[in-house]
Design a protein around this nucleic acid. Sequence first.
DNA 1: TACTGCTATATTGTATTGCTAAGTAGATAA
DNA 2: TTATCTACTTAGCAATACAATATAGCAGTA
Lengths: 107, 107
Amino acid sequence: MNGLTEMLKGVLEGVVLQKISQGETYGYEITRYLNELGFEDIVEGTVYTVLIRLEKKQLLTVTKRKSKIGPMRKFYTLNAAGVAYLASFWEKQAFIEEKLRMIKGEA
Amino acid sequence: MNGLTEMLKGVLEGVVLQKISQGETYGYEITRYLNELGFEDIVEGTVYTVLIRLEKKQLLTVTKRKSKIGPMRKFYTLNAAGVAYLASFWEKQAFIEEKLRMIKGEA
DNA sequence: TACTGCTATATTGTATTGCTAAGTAGATAA
DNA sequence: TTATCTACTTAGCAATACAATATAGCAGTA
């Protein structure tokens, strides 16, 4: 799927949060997950900037640990604010999807 | 619904195209329509920039006509490229919605 | 006339965001 | 040594939604 860039704005943040909410993970793994899921063009750089942004917004807790097969990893989990933010994301997404159905004439 | 701004990026363009596809219309009317639909915070300035962008992308045909109750109106309709672009928008949206369901664990 | 309000479009600047591109660095296998 | 995979960082760019402001036509009213 091409030309998704603009439509991912806002959505990508929620996707990353959702992934983290399902269990402690790190940037590289998140990127691989998104690629496998079908977001083939999303690269590491994009995910890392999202993670740093979420960290600045204080939605994540971070732990640095060694990896056996490479350099240090930064493991992320959601804190309470992150959980709330994620819930808010899904509400917004549901709202937009509902309005889109209405505009399209399916409701 | 607050904080939709970032999530509207990419979507708003499709919404405006869809509205125009349903019959000749103009910026002010589109804004009113979106407000009534529930996008309460979308203002004229936002819609006009979208329209000008779509016009530059050559997706619209434009006709200026007088109004009895105010200044000149710019009426928009979709051309062939606009129809194709709109179809592409809905495909991308369906793709993203599908992936979101997968991530959320509903698929 | 002067004003107020509604209709209608245009423009400028800003913040946010996804992405590109380049770099740094550890571990492992050839 | 070299290459490859893992793993994170950063500078800068392009696109977008939005705020703010400006311009202007028309109707009603005092």
